[in-house]
């Protein structure tokens, strides 16, 4: 199945963004969720600062990894980009359009260009719809392929592209394995010919041997359809393998951002270092020689985050100024940004 065959049936506006240029820019994104009290009268008693002043850009054709532990805001960042959450503040510029200023209706054509693959292939597919209907619905809604016969042909092509038998169009999700369902999730993300796909923990729920199949599929599709990914994951080994650049988040903030090789070879932020050291490598000889730096304590509550640098209570390099001032992201090497004053 070639790229031309799969895309030939849809008409689309010419791509305005060339490879390597900025496709998506996020400026000072903030998303606070109100914490309320009271049953009848809701009073806001605080904010959960899920995403707090995050900025980064994604270039056309690259894969940006967004890593961090539970509750660091990586998924919320993705949802804000897709306008599934309205940001509290900040700008999200996609192909030159400010998404946060668009209303629901104006957002519809943008949604064709941005799709998402979710983590759980069990809960993200409607159990009452056949695979063919799951893939056909977005095309029908967006009026991409009104003709039924052509739509069926395109569904068969999409399934084949994702390594599934086209006969699966007549099956229900429960008749398939986890890996096959995730391929359906990927086919659904592709069916509108997007430029940009957010993979939110897209391979985390899969077994290792199946995970490798899906990782290879994502790589092939990126090549074939000129896709740009935002790859949200907590598994650093997978991120290292798939991503060109990586942003490390902690408690709603970006701690470090660099090219993948640079970040994994020369991590500078103490959190990134601890994170990398915590990941066991599948090789007992290397493991025996590695330094294991175990980070004390746990991630604090985002309702009442620490003052100054949010990482300071767990940081081995902490000094007095860390408790008072929020360290800005500084470019310490070319393209390598670090939010720490002590490195």
């Amino acid at each position: 199945m070639s790229a031309q065959a799969a895309t030939a049936h849809t008409t689309r506006s010419p791509r305005s963004v060339e490879k390597g240029e900025t496709l998506l820019e996020i400026r000072n994104l903030k998303k606070y969720f109100a914490v309320t009290e009271g049953v009848v009268v809701h009073r806001t008693v605080g904010d959960i600062k899920a995403v707090d002043d995050v900025s980064f850009t994604i270039r056309k054709g690259e894969t940006l990894g967004l890593v961090g532990e539970s509750g660091c805001g990586k998924t919320t960042t993705g949802r804000c980009i897709l306008q599934l959450e309205r940001p509290t503040a900040g700008e999200i510029v996609f192909e030159g359009t400010n998404l946060e200023r668009l209303d629901q209706k104006a957002m519809i054509p943008m949604r064709q260009k941005m799709q998402v693959i979710f983590q759980d292939p069990y809960s993200s597919l409607n159990p009452r719809m056949k695979v063919g209907e799951i893939l056909g619905e977005p095309m029908r809604v967006h009026g991409i392929q009104p003709d039924r016969a052509k739509r069926h042909k395109r569904i068969a092509e999409l399934l084949a592209v994702c390594g599934l038998n086209p006969k699966f169009a007549d099956r229900y999700p429960h008749e398939m394995s986890g890996g096959q369902r995730q391929r359906v999730g990927i086919a659904r993300a592709l069916c509108l010919n997007p430029d940009f796909i957010i993979c939110d923990e897209a391979v985390s729920a899969l077994d290792v041997s199946i995970q490798a199949q899906v990782i290879n599929l994502l790589e092939d599709l990126r090549e074939e359809f000129d896709l740009t990914y935002l790859f949200i994951a907590h598994d650093l080994s997978v991120v290292h393998h798939l991503c060109n650049r990586v942003a490390v988040m902690y408690l709603g903030k970006v701690m470090e951002l660099a090219e993948s090789d640079e970040l994994f070879d020369h991590p500078m932020h103490p959190y990134t270092r601890a994170l990398l050291s915590a990941v066991p490598v599948a090789d007992p000889k290397i493991e025996a020689e590695r330094q294991h730096q175990v980070l004390p304590g746990e991630v604090p509550s985002p309702i009442n985050p620490p003052s100054g640098c949010v990482f300071h209570p767990r940081c081995p390099l902490v000094v007095d100024s860390c408790r008072a001032e929020i360290p800005p992201l500084r470019e310490l090497r070319t393209g390598h940004w670090v939010a720490c004053t002590q490195v």
Binding site: V208, S209, I210, Q211, A212, Q213, I215, N216, E219, L236, S237, V238, H240, H241, L242, S260, D261, F264, L276, V279, V281, A282, D283, P284, K285, I286
Partner: peptide, 30 residues
Amino acid sequence: YHNPHHPYTIGLLASVPRMDQHRGKRLVPI
């Protein structure tokens, strides 16, 4: 890890992405 004798073990080790290895290397899934 260093001298696997069963094809499944060999396959399993080849399908895990590793941080200590070169990024460009393609995974060999089972």
